[in-house]
């Protein structure tokens, strides 16, 4: 395995372009090194992006924040502005793994690993985050929701990599939240994850909402029907009940060691309601 640690995006893209074999990007390494250790992948080239300065920072941009691909969970959690703007996304990132994992794991890594159970992704999808993709022909921005195509697979083309995530500015009277269900209190992969972002008007009626679900389908789901259950309501008990039903109805999970279809579907209904309640509370703060 060839190991390279370029110091610019261009150099990284050139390395990717020049390698005909299996390539892996190394940011936090919390997924790829496990795959390496257990023989699930044998890359010909590993490109460490942590020495690219542009990928190491969190920058304010148009009232939102751009988060570099090599920024770790601990840095995201420590960023007061980010935490204030999108607390749900920050919490989702912080739920991933242990303190040790937080020292390394990145938002972009969580996204590009393309697991349907990735904690940060439903929160980012609810937040309408975009990711910036660099490649041989420059860069392009796409919604975070469009990056994963199937478990472990992305829409990235040859010699492309994700350089950053952009979390947009937030409207007044809006709030976001993310909750996941795990059997323990820490260290588990989400059995279900629910991200909700909503905007209320001055009369206390929900103007906009985005509801995203993790670990209940092959990809993270953005459920319009669930959002519709909130929009136009006061996010009261009846609306939350409708939200639960709509979210549960959208689930098409699998049975596996982490949960059954039946359990995942039920928990989605419970969790999405609790998440919306937190988002609502935040919109009023």
């Amino acid at each position: 395995m060839r190991f390279e640690a370029p110091t610019s995006v261009d150099a990284a893209i050139k390395l990717l372009e020049g390698e005909p074999g299996v390539v892996r990007i190394l940011a936090g390494g919390t997924d790829v090194l496990v795959q390496l250790r257990y023989g699930q992948v044998e890359p010909d080239l590993m490109v460490d992006i942590k020495r690219i300065a542009a990928m190491r920072s969190i920058d304010e941009e148009d009232g939102g924040y751009r988060i570099g691909a090599a920024v770790s969970g601990i840095e995201i959690g420590a960023h007061a502005g980010l935490r204030k703007l999108w607390p749900g996304v920050v919490e989702a990132m912080e739920l991933i793994g242990s303190t040790q994992i937080q020292g390394r794991a990145t938002l972009v890594g969580n996204l590009c690993n393309a697991s349907p159970a990735a904690d940060s992704v439903p929160a980012m999808v609810a937040a309408e985050a975009t990711c910036r993709i660099f490649g041989p022909n420059g860069h392009r921005d796409i919604p975070v929701h469009n990056l994963a195509s199937a478990p472990g697979e992305t829409t990235l083309g040859r010699a492309e990599l994700v350089g950053s995530i952009y979390l947009p500015s937030r409207r007044p009277n809006s709030g976001d939240a993310y909750l996941r269900f795990i059997p323990r209190t820490e260290m588990d992969i989400a059995v279900v994850g629910t991200g909700v972002s909503l905007e209320m008007d001055l009369d206390g009626v929900c103007k906009n909402a985005r509801v995203a679900l993790g670990a209940v389908a092959a990809r993270v789901l953005l459920v319009d029907e669930a959002a519709s259950a909130l929009i136009g309501s006061r996010v009261d008990a009846a609306a939350l009940e409708n939200l639960s039903h709509a979210a549960a109805a959208a689930c098409s999970p699998i049975d596996d060691k982490r949960g059954t279809k039946e359990f995942r579907t039920k928990i989605t209904g419970v969790l999405v309601r609790r998440t919306a309640q937190i988002a609502l509370q935040r919109s009023q703060e």
Binding site: A5, L33, T99
Partner: peptide, 26 residues
């Protein structure tokens, strides 16, 4: 060997990490 037990914890540039999830070359 998968970052689940913490027995390999070290400080890397003063930050707590699992050394099983860091490459030597890093």
């Amino acid at each position: 060997g998968s970052g689940d037990c913490g027995a390999c914890s070290i400080l890397l540039d003063n930050r707590l990490v699992c050394s099983c999830l860091v490459l030597g070359v890093e």
